Computed example of a mutant assay.
Amino acid sequence: MREETNPGTGQDRWTDLPRMAPDAGRSSRAAGQVRSSGPFAAERSAGRTVAPSPLDPGATGNPYRVHRVLREEFPLTYDPLLRAWVLSRYADVATALTDARFTHGHRPGDPPCAETHQDIDEAELRAVAARTAYVLARRIADRPQADLVADFCHWLPAGTVAAAVGVPYRDMMRLVRGRAASALAGQCTGQIAVREKALASFLANVLADRERAVALHDAPAGQIARAWTESLRRDPPVQIAVRRTGAEVRVSGGTIPAGEPVALLIGAAGRDPERFRAPDRYDPHRDDPGQLTYGSGTCPAVLLARFEAEYALRALLDAMPRLRLADGFRPRRTGLITRAPRSLLVRPGG
C-alpha cells in the first residue's frame, strides 16, 4: 500500500503502512484488550465483538458508515489490516495531528516547510493560480460537455507549480508531475495529486447547487475560502493519515503505548457530530466551521491550494457563465485512503 498524502493540500507523505506495524503477537494481545473493555463492552458482548476496518471492501462506496461505528463504539481499536491503532473522534485526531507526542508526520512550520516558505511570495502564488485557471477554463469553454476532473483539476495544480518555477506551459506535465515537482518546487508545493482530489471535491460540492455556485463566484475571497474549508471538512481528499507515538498517550477509549503506529481517520473526525452540527451536510455558511489543522506554522501548499480553489471557481464561471452539471450526472467519490470524484461531467454552455 503506497500513498502520497496531504489532507487538503499536500502537506504529508507516508508510505507502506505494514512497515509501521508492531510485532504480530503484541498486536493481537493489544487488540483483544481494547475490544474487551470500555464503555461499549455490553454492546460487544451482546453481538458486536470485532471493530470494522476502514479498509473493509464494503467501505469503498461509503466509508462513513464504518467511521460512525468506530467513533461511537470503538474510539480506540487495533486494526489488523492497517496494522495500526485507529483513532476516529475529532478531539483525538486533532490532538494526534498537532501534539508533539505523535511523530512521523510533516507539520506546517517544520524545517522543510519553513525553508520552502522563506522564498514564497503570496501575491505571486495568487497570480500564477489565477493565470493558470483562466487558461484552462478557456480551453474547455466551447465544448458541449467536459470532465472537470480530467480536463481541469488534473492540470491546475501542476500548472500553478510550473508557472511558479518558470517552467513553460507546454512542458509542465512532463516536468512537474510526480517526484519531479518536489525537486522543482520543494516538498510542500510539489505534492500535486492530493491537491487535484481536493479541488475535484470542492467543485463537486459547489456545482451541486447552481445558485450556490453563482453566489460564490461573486463573493469575496474570504467567503470562497470558507466554502473551501467546509469541503475539506466534509470530503477530505485524504481519509487516513499515519503517525507514531513518541510517548504514551491517553485518548478516548484507552491509552496508546509509546512507539506504536496510529492511523488517524481524517474523514471520520471531520464528520464527528460531537464537533459539527449536521456533519454530513455541505454548508459553506455553517456557524460551526473548522477543519483539522496540522500545526501552527504556515505552509505554502495550504496557500496554493486555497488560491487554486478560488480561481478555479472564478475562472470557470467567468468563461462559462451557464456552467452546470451534465444531465443526470451525480459525482461519485471513491477510495479508502484518498477519496475524490473520478469524474465531474459538466455542460459548459448550460
Rank of each mutant, 00 (worst) to 15 (best):
G25K: 14
R65L: 10
W228P: 09
D280E: 15
R138K: 08
A241K: 12
R35C: 09
A193N: 09
P7T: 10
Y169F: 06
E211H: 12
R306Y: 00
R68S: 10
Y90R: 12
P80H: 07
S27W: 13
A258N: 09
R143D: 12
A180S: 12
R89Y: 06
P341N: 08
P284I: 09
P341T: 10
V93I: 11
R26F: 13
R233K: 07
A181N: 03
R195T: 03
V93C: 05
P284Y: 05
R179A: 14
R333Q: 13
R138L: 06
F329N: 14
L17E: 10
T98Q: 15
D92N: 14
L216C: 07
T229V: 09
R143G: 05
Y90N: 11
V165C: 01
G295S: 10
G335P: 00
R139E: 15
L175S: 00
H285A: 11
G253S: 08
A278I: 06
L264V: 02
A30D: 12
F202M: 04
L313A: 10
S45A: 15
G166D: 00
A181D: 02
G349Q: 13
A51S: 14
A305S: 06
T5S: 13
P7N: 11
P39Y: 02
R174V: 10
P157S: 01
R71H: 07
L125Y: 11
A59W: 00
V50E: 11
P39R: 13
L232A: 07
A114Y: 09
T229L: 09
F40H: 11
A258V: 07
A180E: 10
E73F: 04
A24I: 15
R342H: 14
K197S: 13
A326N: 05
R277Y: 01
V66M: 11
R234S: 00
R330C: 02
P80G: 04
V167N: 10
G190K: 05
A141Q: 12
S231A: 13
A123V: 12
R212W: 10
P7K: 01
V346A: 10
A91Y: 03
E308V: 07
G290I: 08
S37K: 08
L81D: 08
R233P: 09
D12G: 00
G190E: 03
V194I: 03
D272Q: 04
R89G: 12
R339N: 01
R65E: 12
V128K: 00
G159S: 00
Y294A: 09
G109N: 04
G349P: 01
V262Y: 12
A24G: 09
C188W: 03
L303I: 02
E310G: 07
D99P: 04
